[in-house]
């Protein structure tokens, strides 16, 4: 059951301030009810469709610096004069 408290919990998990929580309560509830159709699935298999690779198929351990016309990547990001990324305070 999706109520105000649950939608607030979910919005906290995804870190999105909801402007109109009521609208989402209704829609999320409706869709989740539809998802409950999965309860009827009765299929027993450990198989997955994921690709499997042998260890030799993985990337070799080599250092190759990222090059973008000789410019470091940090120049393309939000940074301060000392090349740090500034994040909000963590109190």
């Amino acid at each position: 059951m999706i109520d105000r408290k649950e939608i607030e919990h979910l919005s906290d998990l995804i870190k999105v301030e909801l402007k109109d929580p009521e609208k989402y309560i209704k829609q999320v509830e409706q869709i989740l009810n539809y998802f409950d159709r999965l309860d009827a699935v009765d299929f027993d298999s450990e198989e997955t469709l994921r690709k499997e690779v042998k260890i030799d198929g993985l990337r070799d351990d080599k250092y190759v610096p990222f090059q973008d016309n000789g410019k470091p990547l940090i120049d393309k990001l939000k940074k301060d004069p000392n090349n740090y990324i500034r994040a909000p305070k963590m109190v």
Binding site: D61, K62, Y63, V64, F66, L73, N82, N83
Partner: peptide
Amino acid sequence: ESKLFCNCKADYRNLPTNQNICPVCV
């Protein structure tokens, strides 16, 4: 030699700030 998921240097010590990065590790 390299990071877990990209080719940047695994030894990040004593490098200038944010100079050992690429699209994958950021």
